[in-house]
Amino acid sequence: MKARVFVSLKSTVLDPQGQTVRSALNGLGYHGIAGVRQGKFFDIALAEGVTREQAQKEIETIAHEVLANPVIEEYRVEILD
């Protein structure tokens, strides 16, 4: 079993990297791009024997306590088979 955690800046937090990517895309002629927000994700392999329920609970905790800073970031957890 695997888990994936997506972390991105909250919409209220300035994302200068995303803005720079957007202006670069516009500069390349992609005029249909109105905005870019940059984030990151973590691929996590779970040990054998861990149940889906345990994984969900533990990864939520890890995401909140370690992988994301709730002051500036939001996260989403996916458990994959």
Partner: peptide, 17 residues
């Protein structure tokens, strides 16, 4: 200190990158 919660807020990427 902000990550540890001893001070409020956060320090993020400089506006000009």
């Amino acid at each position: 200190l902000v990550e540890a919660g001893l001070l409020p807020g956060a320090l993020i990427r400089n506006r000009g990158l």
